[in-house]
Each structure stands twice: as C-alpha cells, then as structure tokens.
C-alpha cells in the first residue's frame, strides 16, 4: 500500500527552458495533464499543468488588433515562466492513504514522487489511486456482495470471517459502514463465489441479520419530502 507500488515510474518530463507550445503538445500526445519540470540531474524544479498552459494562451476575447502580438508573446514564453514551483510532493514511502488524503485536501490531481535527495522518482495521479482502489475492492474479480448487520461489539467480524472461511470461500474485500441504528454496523463482504444461497442461510442461522445491499444504498440517497 505504498505510493512506490502504484505510481507511474516512466515519467514524461520537460525542461524549464522548453516552450509553452512544446509543453502543450507533450501533454496532448500522451493524454496527461501534469508535466514535472526537471533539470539535467533529475531534480524536480516544478510542475506545469494543462491549466497553466491554457491560462498562458491568448484569450478568445483578446482584441483582434493585438492578437498577433499576443501570439508572439506566448511563443516567447517558456515553461519556467508559467510552472508552479511551490509543488506538493510525496515520497515513495508515503502510503496510498496519504496520497488519497492529500488529493482530497489539496484538490490537486497528481503529485510528483520525490526521494530524500529531491530526485524525481515517479508521479502518482487520481487515475493510479483509482486503479489501486479497484484492486483493493476486488471489483474486477468475479464475486458477489453481502450486507450483514452486526452489533457494534468485539468479535463479530471474526465470527463472520470464520463462517465464510469454513466454506472455503475467498474474500475480495470487506467494507464496514455506518448504519442508521446506533450501535450497529453494516458489514459488506465481497465474496469470490457464485454459491450465495448456502452462505446466506448459514449466516442467518448464526443469528446475523442480512440486508439487501440496495436498502442500505437507498438510505444514503437524499429523501424527498
């Protein structure tokens, strides 16, 4: 669960003396929105984003008489003139949770990954985190979702896991969420099996309350008056 396992290691970068047009073309050609700017020693100097580039381009509202002049100005602009230098970076040994929280708080879409010496090691974006999320949830593996209501006391999860493991069923993931009854939790095991009826019966016979996962979801939707 470390950034180093999920980041892109072959980073597409640009030098600070490159033109803004070069930066724009590089991002378009590679379908990316963030270009780390580095020096010849692979030290991170800044980041240039597609938004930085767009802001540098002449406005469509620019005076037609001045358009040629504006274009000329842009042609002279270099990456170093528009890049962000105050960049939030993460270390390869940050956890994915760190990266998710950072993105959540800063609303930045990607972070350069930099080691202790300031060298660029990779880049981690929302896309990489989504891929890790798909992996962790087991979304791409064949399985089915249960929703079990449990009392909020110790040892409940062990009973569930033991009961399912005894049936030789593997887990894709388990999520635990709040429930409208205080003192209860909704547990969502994603089970890698098609044989759902048997395990459902078993859990019920153990005294667990099984909920249609949809009922829980519907509770999350805004209520109409």
């Amino acid at each position: 669960m470390f950034v180093t396992n999920s980041m892109q290691k072959n980073v597409i970068t640009i030098g600070k003396e490159a033109s803004v047009f070069e930066a724009r073309d590089k991002m378009a050609a590679n379908s990316i929105r963030h270009l780390p700017v580095i020096d010849s020693e692979n030290n991170l100097l800044g980041v240039v984003t597609d938004r930085d580039v767009r802001s540098a381009m002449p406005s469509v509202f620019a005076d037609v008489c001045n358009l040629e002049e504006e274009k000329k100005k842009v042609a002279e602009l270099k990456v170093k003139d528009i890049m962000t230098t105050n960049v939030t970076t993460v270390s390869p040994m940050h956890t994915l949770q760190d990266a998710i929280m950072l993105i959540h708080r800063t609303r930045v879409g990607a972070f350069p990954v930099v080691d202790e010496d300031g060298k660029l090691k990779g880049i981690i974006s929302v896309r990489d985190l989504l891929r890790a999320f798909v992996n962790v949830l087991g979304i791409e593996e064949p399985g089915m979702l249960l929703c079990i209501l449990v009392e909020n006391k110790q040892g409940q999860m062990k009973r569930i896991v033991d009961a399912i493991t005894e049936e030789k069923i593997s887990f894709g993931s388990i999520l635990v969420a709040r429930y409208w009854d205080e003192g209860k939790r909704a547990v969502f095991p994603y089970l890698l099996t098609n044989n759902v009826a048997h395990i459902k019966r078993k859990l019920k016979s153990m005294g667990f309350e099984l909920l249609n996962p949809m009922e829980w979801y519907l509770d999350q939707l805004p209520k109409h008056d």
């Binding site: 979304i139 979702l145 099996t193 996962p213």
Partner: peptide
C-alpha cells in the same frame, strides 16, 4: 454486477 456474481 456491483451486487451479484460475476462482477461483469
């Protein structure tokens, strides 16, 4: 598929 086997 978010609820049922096989998830596709």
């Amino acid at each position: 598929p978010s609820f049922a086997f096989p998830g596709t």
